[in-house]
């Protein structure tokens, strides 16, 4: 992996982020009505002084290109604007909520990949076996279930039938002052249902994908070579085959990340998880555009970073790509 390649990828990622900023700017201006009123949202509608302040702040009386320049300049300085509903800077609002979202999304991603790939690999051993059939059916069901509905069903199940997992929020109020370990375990306890809900859809897809990918790899010549060496079935499956079969899985994992964030939006709303999804939901209901745009910016940034990491891990996993650009 050459440093120049890394730099190029980073630059490209930044370019994409710049694109998101321009898009945000355009969206505000494309919306019907006075941009100042749009930015102020429901709260500022009547207040002329506030509108004047916004116009000055965003340079709305200047030519459009200058306005764009001012906007980009603000974003570069970490100023995503002021939320007039929450009466806080957008950057602060998001800063407080991005952690829980990252936690949720990463847990769901890891959970779905680990479980899904494991199921897929086991299923691939017997392409016409019971588990293979289960994986196919499960994948089709997983694809068809609305994620927010799965969450609600789990809440009903775990709130009234098996009350072993908390169904709401991220922390218990009574443990707020406990030690770090206790609080971490408490968060993990709260994380179980939302992470599982979010993981469920993708788990099914990874199982199906890794089954197909494994079946293809298991038919290849180098698997026969491994068997001819006397390698055990487990080594053939998990060392020789999985390493190769993981390449398409990695690609999909990267592409899915954006969808995962979309899913997290719904899951956070269902489980009252205090992340960016809740923030997006609340700010959209209040038409708090600076906050919405800020969330869109940060969520896109997460996808860009995830794509970058996927690309790098792909290169680590496949020696044929190393040293090429």
């Amino acid at each position: 992996m050459t440093p120049s390649y890394l730099l190029r990828r980073l630059f490209y990622g930044l370019l994409l982020m710049l694109g998101v900023v321009v898009l945000n700017f355009l969206l505000i201006r494309l919306a019907p009505g006075d941009p100042a009123v749009v930015i102020a949202g429901e709260m500022g509608g009547a207040d002329e002084a506030l509108l004047a302040a916004i116009r000055a702040d965003y340079g709305l009386d200047k030519p459009v290109l200058t306005q764009l320049g001012i906007y980009i300049g603000n974003v570069l300085q970490g100023d995503l604007g002021q939320s007039f509903f929450f009466n806080q800077p957008v950057a602060t609002l998001i800063g407080d909520r991005i952690g829980p979202t990252i936690l949720l999304v990463l847990c769901a991603q890891v959970l779905s990949i680990l479980l899904g790939v494991f199921l897929g690999v086991i299923a691939a051993r017997k392409p016409n076996g019971v588990l293979s059939g289960f994986v196919s059916v499960f994948a089709t069901i997983g694809y068809a279930v609305p994620v927010f509905w799965t969450g609600i069903m789990l809440i009903i199940l775990f709130a009234s039938v098996f009350p072993i997992f908390p169904v709401e929020g991220m922390q218990s109020v009574r443990l707020r002052d406990a030690g770090f370990m206790i609080r971490a375990l408490d968060v993990a306890h709260h994380l179980v249902l939302p992470a599982f809900t979010l993981a469920l859809i993708y788990l099914a897809q990874y199982a199906r994908l890794s089954r197909a990918s494994m079946l293809e790899v298991l038919g290849s010549d180098y698997i026969r070579t491994a068997r001819a060496k006397g390698a055990s079935e487990r080594s053939v499956l998990f060392k020789h085959a999985l390493r190769n079969a993981s390449l398409p899985i990695l690609t999909v994992a990267g592409l899915q990340f954006g969808n995962l964030i979309s899913g997290a939006l719904l899951v956070e709303t269902v489980f009252n998880w205090p992340g960016m999804g809740r923030l997006a939901f609340d700010s959209i209901l209040r038409r708090d555009y600076p906050t919405i745009m800020g969330v869109l910016f940060f969520a896109s940034a997460m996808v860009v970073v995830a794509n970058l990491l996927t690309d790098l891990s792909y290169r680590l996993a496949d020696p044929r790509l190393r040293g090429k650009s």
Binding site: D221, R224, T225, A317
Partner: peptide, 11 residues
Amino acid sequence: FQEPMTSLNPV
């Protein structure tokens, strides 16, 4: 084996 191109594990 017959196919040296594909008989070795690429990774």
